[in-house]
Write a protein that binds this DNA or RNA. Structure first.
Length: 704
RNA sequence: GUCCCCGUAGCUCAGCUGGAUAGAGCGCGCGCCUCCUAAGCGCGAGGCCGACGGUUCAAAUCCGUCCGGGGACGCCA
């Protein structure tokens, strides 16, 4: 949806990359007659220190063999022919063959501090849909869900930073087994009516209550098989509607979704649309998708064998490798050599692998529903939801709400005047790695109905699970038997079924409590309310950065003590750096009456020796150069979908600043020009770090 | 059986489309608050980047084989 995009964006580093690449490419064409097709890609990186240069390229190495010339000589040729390029102060051929560039420092920083600079890269056209969170609405959210929403929300922020229009969806599985389980818990185990359940919801922490109840139900299934029959019946009731069980299920799902939204709001995570599975069912999205799949021959009715009577989709193994090469014809996909009969194998092993989409009893599987949903997301279904306002969201604690209400799908009625949803050019599904197989099937379905480009634009943003460290599992009262498999593993798996896990709100509460104690200790003059507000910001920083600082493919062995850390490589460390920087400017204003704008406006007449390394150190300039790389980092993050890169970048920048802070005073610096350039560099760095934190969904406290 | 992910310092992890001396945090040892907040800073110890082959001027990074750990492959979702 159209959230406020910053109209003006500070120029960062990428435009410099582009200019340099283009210039070097032109030089290669002139010097060696290498045109676009024959010239090597010009890789730019950062020399290990500023003495060597600000940017560098190993392009000479690449050319050495082809030109039968030493890398250093090639680098010297290019440097000699370089001429002048806006923003570049000097070019140097390093003895080892690197070609290095030195930037015009003063101009670089001034350009980045001026408010009206142009956006650095033009955004691609078309909307992106990001689906994340999607917690079963039957119990409280836990730390595993926090990883999903932290990743999902950061993705949203990063895409928006890049200028991409993003629609955020949260899928609600209100008609699934897990909700049915809790209904069984209330009705069978506890003998409750809908009214009594309402009463419980009013008087307890409902999502916590359901957390325990769900664990009891799943435990009871093992002893009392009759309960399973009750579950089947409940599931059937929910699907058909208009009965007590369906009403209870709807009530539970609605209440729990509200709980989840509150939890996520605490994390600075929100959505544009809640898509309810029940609406997909009732609006017969599947029937529509089924027609398309049948018409294209993507699914067929299996007549014999163990899958007789089912509608199935053939499974292809190498769809990831080359989506466009996939042809929806199972009979011809085998390369000739693999068709040679193998006497060792039996016929049924050679049989095409097939995924059941519609069961022999006529009921569609989860895959089928998801295919229909994915078609809708890409605007390929030819059908739409109705929409209702779920919550109004008039404003937040930080001021007026940045956008309109939170919408939800509905089956009938709804508002006639609603934003357009669905129909995106790109789709990102943030779902854990265990669902890779299903996500692959979605792509296959898209290819099979003749939309390979839809498959290419559907991204499964997969990530590994959050497990518990043994120490934390013990704290929660779970110790695996000494010789069991569980005890030998490096971590303990979270289990909603067993009720084993750290609830999201519990984690936030304890973090807020300990952050609050620290804030109070350091800032006794603050009111309790202000102190608590700051504690919340710090807690969020701790959790969100913890959840994104590991790469996606890594299992997080969640350790309470580690996640509790406000020191070292943590979100609060980054916040602290920004708070310190802000503090400097507050005092500069108070003591010297020097405000940021006045300071910056006067800069052009101040000698820039400090920035140029007149003191023999390039530390100040290094801060500026590093700070300018945020856009490059964002590009890398989007390309790799690896947010640890962002977390590491922000941390390293904060680290550089902290070191500088100790070495180079600003308030007490007596040389005016030195003082001013230090201040200017720190303003820029502070701005960039604040934006980086914002991309992580983290606010900057006024004090810490 | 097939496929996917992971294997880097005592521990937890970064290292992006190959590039200049392999990094960080925690932990450990020693220092630093009459000086913009010590949630901080400095110094130190600590690594045959799972193994072996290959590609390359250049491999932790790419390819292959193997070893070790995790996961997926259901008329569940």
């Amino acid at each position: 949806m159209c959230r406020r995009q910053p109209r003006k964006r500070t120029t960062l580093i990428l435009p410099v990359h582009d200019r340099l690449r283009a210039h070097v490419a032109r030089l290669l064409a002139t010097l060696y007659s290498l045109d676009d097709s024959s010239a090597p890609a010009i890789v730019l990186d950062y020399p290990p220190n500023r003495e060597l240069g600000d940017l560098g390229t190993p392009v000479a190495f690449e050319l050495a063999r082809r030109l039968r010339k030493a890398p250093r000589a090639i680098a010297q040729d290019i440097a000699g022919a370089f001429g002048s390029l806006d923003g570049i102060r000097q070019v140097a051929a390093a003895p080892n063959g690197y070609l290095n560039f030195f930037l015009e420092r003063r101009e670089f920083l001034l350009a980045r501090l001026s408010p009206g600079a142009a956006a650095s890269v033009k955004p691609p056209a078309g909307k992106a849909i990001v689906e994340h969170t999607a917690i079963n609405p039957n119990k409280a959210a836990h730390i595993g869900h926090l990883r999903n929403s932290a990743l999902g929300d950061t993705l949203v922020r990063v895409l928006r930073f890049r200028g991409i229009t993003v629609e955020v969806q949260n899928y609600i599985d209100d008609t699934g087994v897990q909700v049915a389980d809790v209904v069984v818990g209330f009705r069978v185990l506890e003998g409750k009516t809908l009214d009594q359940i309402r009463e419980i919801a009013e008087t307890t922490r409902f999502d916590y209550y359901c957390w325990d109840l769900y664990a009891r139900v799943t435990e009871s299934y093992e002893q009392d098989k009759a309960l399973l029959a009750a579950r089947a019946e409940t599931l059937h009731d929910i699907e058909h509607g208009d009965n007590e069980n369906a009403a209870i299920a709807a009530f539970i799902a609605d209440r729990i979704v509200h709980c989840h939204l509150e939890t996520m709001a605490r994390m600075n995570v929100d959505y544009d649309l809640l898509t309810w599975e029940g609406d997909i069912l009732r609006l017969k999205f599947w029937a529509q998708a089924f027609e398309v799949l049948k018409a294209k021959g993507a699914v067929y009715l299996q007549k014999e064998g163990r899958l007789a009577g089912c509608w199935v989709m053939p499974i292809q193994d190498d769809v990831e490798a080359n989506p466009k090469a996939q042809i929806p014809n199972p009979k011809s996909k085998e390369p000739p050599e693999s068709r040679i009969p193998n006497p060792e194998s039996r016929d049924d092993e050679e049989e095409e692998r097939e995924k059941v989409i519609v069961r022999s009893n006529g009921v569609v599987t989860y895959v089928g529903k998801d295919i229909a949903y994915q078609f809708w997301k890409l605007g390929l279904l030819g059908k739409d939801f109705h929409y209702r306002v779920f919550t109004a969201r008039p404003s937040t604690s930080l001021g007026p709400g940045p956008h309109g209400p939170l919408w939800a799908t509905c089956t009938t009625g709804g508002e006639s005047d609603h934003p357009m949803f669905g129909g995106a050019a790109y789709v990102y599904n943030v779902i854990d790695v265990r669902q890779s197989y299903l996500q692959k099937l979605l792509k296959q379905a898209l290819i099979a109905v003749g939309h390979p480009e839809g498959a290419e634009r559907s991204h499964h943003f997969s990530y590994e699970m959050v497990a518990l460290s043994h120490a934390t599992a013990r704290e929660l009262g779970y110790a695996p038997p000494p010789d069991s498999e569980d005890a030998k593993r490096p971590f303990v798996e979270v289990s909603g079924r067993k009720g084993l896990g750290v609830k999201a709100d519990d984690l936030l509460d304890t973090l807020i409590r300990s952050a609050g104690a620290e804030v109070g200790k350091r800032n006794p003059e603050l009111s309790d309310e202000e102190s608590r507000r700051i504690a919340r910001m710090i807690a969020i920083a701790a959790v969100r950065s913890f959840m994104i600082k590991f790469s996606r493919g890594k299992v997080i062995a969640f350790d309470l003590e580690e996640a509790h850390s406000f020191e070292g490589e943590s979100g609060p460390y980054i916040q602290y750096a920004v708070v310190r920087a802000n503090n400097i400017f507050q005092k500069l204003q108070q003591r010297d009456g020097l405000n940021e704008n006045v300071l910056l406006n006067a800069l052009k007449d101040v000698p820039a020796g400090e920035l140029d390394g007149a003191n023999g150190s390039h530390e100040l300039w290094s801060l500026v150069l590093d700070a300018s790389r945020l856009d490059e980092i964002v590009e890398q993050v989007i390309r790799s979908l690896e947010f640890s890169v962002l977390a590491k970048y922000a941390f390293a920048l904060a680290q550089s600043f902290n070191a500088f802070y100790h070495r180079a005073p600003i308030l007490n610096e007596e040389r005016d020009d030195v003082k001013r350039w230090r201040a200017a560099a720190v303003i820029y760095l502070r701005n960039q770090l604040t934006r980086a934190l914002d991309l992580m969904g983290v606010d900057v406290p006024p004090r810490m």
